[in-house]
């Protein structure tokens, strides 16, 4: 069958790579990403030490101030300490593109029938495809605006900066440096939907992947793994929503103040490092 398409000739490999990329690297990244981002809310609890670069100390800070500080530390660490960052990013983007393109091709082979077979698993099937379609649009917007700097897509035109991670993020989502705008509300809503759908997509994908790869065979195993994936998904969902909640609650100006102080502290830190040498 010489006329077989590329997709047909490598059918199995592509299907499995599609499944695999959804977990590694995309899924793993999602977990890390939401962990980092949600620190906007829980970061205060994670602050260690009261070094002089935290001019305001741990005890005196508000929840959000702590979050902003911790988040900034995490972002700085990622940007300055993680090796081969660009390579990691490229791998991630390629994986997402691969997963998305094949996902759309595969999704188009099916025809949803939840109106007749309103079973929960059938709804999950349908949502998996819907969340894939919408999720990829969201990811594109998210990466384009906050990573590639396509500020013309950002209400208020804020460009995200990794030196002012929380404040620029908050401004981008709220639609302005100062208050919440209507456009900002739309962006926030988009984030809420995007994050929710993608977390569902990942958790449900993890559940079906175990069937696809043949890890969970028995009904019982599928149920158990289902609950595990639900738990994981619920955890990620909380983190996703927490991230978003943090972003919309943060006053960019106040956050900037915290970030400024960290910038100053950081300068001191790096000078100290030089002195040691």
């Amino acid at each position: 069958m010489a006329s077989q398409s590329f997709l047909d000739r490598h059918h199995f490999l592509l299907r499995r790579l599609h499944s695999l990329t959804g977990i590694v690297p995309i899924g793993v990244f999602l977990i890390a990403h939401l962990t980092t981002n949600s620190s906007l809310l829980w970061g205060k609890a994670g602050l260690r030490g009261t070094g002089d670069h935290y001019s305001f100390g741990k005890d005196g800070v508000t929840l959000l101030e702590g979050g902003v500080a911790y988040f900034q530390k995490e972002v700085t660490w990622i940007n300055e300490q993680v090796p081969h960052l660009l390579l990691i990013e490229l791998t991630l983007w390629l994986s997402i593109a691969f997963h998305a393109v094949l996902g759309v091709i595969y999704a188009r082979t099916g025809r949803a029938n939840t109106s007749r077979y309103e079973y929960q698993s059938n709804w999950r099937y349908r949502l998996q495809r819907l969340s894939g379609y919408l999720g990829i649009l969201f990811i594109f917007y998210h990466v384009a605006t906050l990573r590639w700097g396509w500020t013309f897509l950002v209400p208020g035109g804020t460009a995200w900066s990794h030196d002012f991670a929380a404040s620029t993020l908050a401004a981008a989502i709220r639609g302005s440096e100062t208050g919440f705008t209507a456009a900002g509300f739309a962006v926030a809503l988009l984030y809420f939907l995007g994050v929710t759908l993608l977390v569902f997509h990942f958790a449900n994908g993890l559940w079906t992947a175990a069937i696809t790869w043949g890890l969970t065979i028995s009904q019982r195993a599928q149920e158990r793994w289902g609950y595990a994936c639900f738990a994981l998904g619920a955890g990620l969902m909380v983190m996703g929503w927490a991230s978003l909640l943090g972003a919309v609650m943060i006053d960019p100006a106040k956050a900037r103040a915290v970030e400024q102080s960290i910038q100053e502290g950081k300068v001191g830190e790096s000078l100290a490092g030089q002195a040691d040498r």
Binding site: L7, F12, Y106, T109, N113, Y119, S121, N122, R124, R126
Partner: peptide, 18 residues
């Protein structure tokens, strides 16, 4: 493993219910 094989299953799991 080929086109139309088991990988094309979308795990809607309607099959087992009906």
């Amino acid at each position: 493993m080929g086109p139309g094989g088991v990988s094309d299953c979308g795990n809607a799991q309607n099959c087992v219910k009906v």
